[in-house]
Structures are given as C-alpha cells and as structure tokens.
Design a protein around this nucleic acid. Structure first.
Length: 325
DNA sequence: AAGTCACTCAACCGCAGGACG
DNA sequence: GCGTCCTGCGGTTGAGTGACT
C-alpha cells in the first residue's frame, strides 16, 4: 500500500523550522484552525510539505504543549504504561497532558531506557536482566554456558560490557528478536521481583497501584508474577510454565526451570514442531478443547492471557481505560 | 584550542487505516 | 468495491550541542 508523496519533495524545504515559519503556521491556525494540512503550506505561504507542517504543529507549536522537562511522576507513568502496552507512544502520551508521542518516545529512548538498564531491568520486558538471560538460556539451550550472571552489574557482567537490553545482548545467538518477544509475556511480569534497588523509581504495586517505597528488594529466583487483587489473595501466574514447558516431553523432565542447570536441548524449531504436532493431534482427539483444556496446552496459554488481560483491566481501570486495544 | 565522542531531540520516512466520492 | 486523500503512528535519522581528551 503506502502513500503517494504528499507534495513535490524536491521543491519543499526540509530541516529545522525558523521562527518566521512558525509564525506563519500560528497565524494561519489562529484564523482558520487546524485541518486539511495539505493545503496549509500553500495558504500560509510556506514552502513546506503539509505533513511537515502538521508535525510541527502537533509536536511543537500546539499551545497546550509543555516544553519543560519530564517530572518523576511523568517518568513513572511512562514506565508503567510501557510495561503494560509497550511502545504505543501515542496511547502513553494521552496519559500525559501536554506531552506528545514524540516527546514520550524520545524521552524513553534517551533517558528511561538507560535508567532501567542501569538498574538491571530489561527495558523491553521490564524484567531483571539476569532473569531474562537465564530464561533465554533455558529457551535456547545455552543454559550450560556461563550460568553465573550476576544480578548486580560488576566488571564482568553483561551490563557493564554493553548498554544493550537483554535481547540485544542475545543478538549474537540464533534466536530472533521476534521469537524472544513472543516468549516474553511482559505484561505479566513483575519488575519488583528483582534484587536490584529500584529507587528512585516506584514500581507498580498491584494492590495499591503505586509503590512509593524508596527501595524494592526481593529475590529474582521467583519466576512468578504475583498479581494481588484488592479483595483477594495473590494469584500466581507462572509464565515460565508456558515458556519452558514442552507439551510433548514428560512433565518430570521439565520441572527444572529458572535457576536450575537443566535445560532443554531442543531447539526452537524442534519445540515448534512438537507444539504443532500436539496441537494437531489435539484437534483430532478433542473436539471440545475448551471443556477439557489442560493447564499447559496451546489453548490454555491463550486463555490464560485473555484471563489475565481481563484481570488487569478490572484491576487497573484508571491506567488502562483509555487504551484502545 | 581543536578534535572527537556521546547525547538529545526535532524532523523525516514509510506504512496503515479511515473517510469519502 | 475501488481509488484517492488525509491523518495517525512508530521507527529512524541527523543536526546541534555539550562533555571529554
């Protein structure tokens, strides 16, 4: 698909805007309002692409925009939102009055990502890097090599060797980013499950929304995300069950997960093959799979995600209400 | 003082989807 | 249903700037 050029690019100015150009847009919008950006350059006397005019207005000239630096509260909100919905900057920006998606995106890429990495949190999954690396090793069968990643950065740690996120660190291996993403259900992870000092950030506490303690410390050996509902006990969603359980292998050969030295020697392709064959045979053998779903089947995984999605929606309406799924 | 590096952020690019004729 | 136009979005780029050597 794609769009035809909105203007003759050879004849339009590009690059930074001058005060004079800004003034022309402001003057035009003050009289005519926004809309029909393709005509605005001509009508406002600008040698710019309409798209460029729209961007200049929405990202810089709009009177409701803030131009000061992000507050800790705003940063906190961005991190929380990113953990829940990922890089949907426009949705996140809607939660921050006076901020544009470009602002949020830039701030994330230049500041927040680095802050998280310094704290040992993988900015993609929002999980401790050590946990991500261990999980990756379990997934890819690299568990035997260098299994002694430290949770805190040291001279030898991967965190000091690179500013990369965990999956960037894994870039040298055979697993694709997509595969990694698909196996990292980030919205169910609990960044508080870390040995890192999380100050000055205040991570999400599922029972009272904001955890305002100056530090948060607990063992990363727990691979379960504990979701506490206000009026209920904690429910544990052990995502590693899905990540590491092979529906074909006997359960007793899969019982060792994080922190263990045992890993599956199956490659991802092999796992996928097993998974597909199981799903196929399930389709033949079980007409009503919903009625008799097992805890770790493909359908149960999807069901679990949907269940948790509903659960989160019910828990955090203030945060999630406006996100258009 | 000059050169290099790292960082920031405004702006650009291309794709997707909705509206409309 | 199809094509065109417009807008929104996320990823990427590169000019400007400050820190460092």
């Amino acid at each position: 698909m794609g769009m035809p050029p909105c203007c003759d690019k050879s004849n339009v100015k590009k690059g930074l805007w001058t005060e004079e150009e800004d003034a022309k847009i402001l003057a035009y919008v003050a009289i005519h309002g926004v809309g029909n950006w393709s005509l605005i350059p001509k009508k406002a006397g600008l040698n710019r692409c309409g798209k460029s005019c729209r961007l200049r207005w929405t990202n810089y000239l709009r009177p409701d925009l803030k131009h000061d630096s992000f507050s800790p509260q705003e940063e906190e909100l961005i991190i929380q939102c990113h953990r829940v919905i990922g890089s949907r900057w426009s949705s996140i920006a809607r939660k921050l009055p006076g901020r544009t998606d470009n602002d949020v995106k830039n701030h994330w890429n230049t500041k927040l990502k680095k802050k998280l990495m310094k704290m040992g949190i993988d900015p993609v999954t929002h999980k401790p890097v050590s946990q991500v690396v261990l999980e990756f090793r379990n997934i890819s069968g690299h568990g035997h090599e260098n299994a002694s990643f430290k949770t805190e950065p040291s001279n030898n740690s991967i965190l000091t060797q690179s500013n990369s996120s965990a999956w960037e660190i894994m870039g040298n291996t055979t697993m694709s980013h997509e595969t990694y993403y698909n196996n990292s259900p980030m919205i169910f992870t609990n960044p508080a499950s870390s040995e890192f000092q999380t100050s000055p950030f205040h991570f999400y506490n599922h029972s009272n929304h904001l955890l305002n303690g100056t530090t948060s410390s607990c063992s990363s050996s727990s691979s379960s995300a504990s979701i506490t509902q206000p009026n209920q006990g904690a429910t544990n969603f052990c995502w590693n069950d899905y990540l590491l359980s092979d529906p074909v292998l006997p359960q007793n050969s899969q019982t060792q997960v994080l922190g263990s030295s045992a890993t599956s020697n199956l490659t991802f392709a092999q796992n996928e093959l097993h998974f597909n064959s199981l799903a196929e045979s399930s389709a033949h053998n079980n007409i009503d799979t919903n009625a008799s779903r097992t805890s770790h089947s493909a359908s149960s995984f999807v069901d679990e995600i949907l269940d948790k999605d509903q659960e989160m929606l019910s828990q955090f309406p203030p945060l999630l209400n406006d996100f258009d799924y």
